[in-house]
Amino acid sequence: MLAYVLKRLGLGILVMLAVSTIVFTLTNVAADPARTIAGEGATAADVEAARIAYGFDRPIPVRYAEWLANVAQGDLGTSYRQRRPVADVVAERLPVTLALGLAAFALALALSLPLGLLAGLRENTWVDRLALVFALVGQAMPTFWFALLGMVIFVVKLGWLPASGSDTWRHFVLPSVVLAYYATPTLMRLTRAGVIEVMKSDYIRTARAKGLRPGKVVLKHAMRNAILPLVSVAAVQLGFMLGGSIVVETIFAMRGLGYLAWESITFSDLPVIQAVVLLIAGIYVLLTLGADILNAWLDPRLRMG
């Protein structure tokens, strides 16, 4: 198991290297950092001066190697816009994103697991149909539109929730719901499919033949098997919520990573963009690894490897 984890971590580092290469190259080809640093209204001479001062006249591979060496030592560079270390800028924004992502993830699980279970147990009844409609609507509902509708109803019409910001827990309610509804359909449909599949299996019949109560049959014998395929997908969803909340954070002006990324993109603040992408990629690698470990814990057949 340890060897497996180490191997996976090694692969994860390789993947992140590849991601960083792509992102560094793309951003540096697409934008001219010298122009950003020189600021708006700078003359061609100013830009040229900045280019030489910051070493942007050197080829991209050289700059990439230098950047990578710095990153390896924990130095993510300096934000062009805020003129502060990128690490500080990012660290400041991480808590909001973590809180939002985890709240949304918890909410998504709290919705999709019981709903999927119920729909699976009552296949082809009105409960199942209703859950399916709920999932279909969620899948087709653009996050930003759902966010706007939520704003119209709960902020504008009812005045229950604050419109934007991330200062109190009330600021997190609407964004979490919006983000959770995005992830719920996938998780719910997977749970439903898993439950239907597992309830047909022989060991469920065995459990019932032992006289176990229906609740125990479902929660102990069916659920653990039914959620096995869910784990890795849920990890990806969590990664998406931590990294993909950019739309939600921007709409609600929450001072998290996503909003930071949006700001940095509009200002061509390349070091921050690179750092955020790398951080999210790192979170993804760790989450998928965590999912594999969790799966091995849930399913003894995987432990032998």
Partner: peptide, 8 residues
């Protein structure tokens, strides 16, 4: 082969 629950 299938009458026993694989995870317990």
């Amino acid at each position: 082969m299938t009458a026993l629950n694989p995870v317990y």
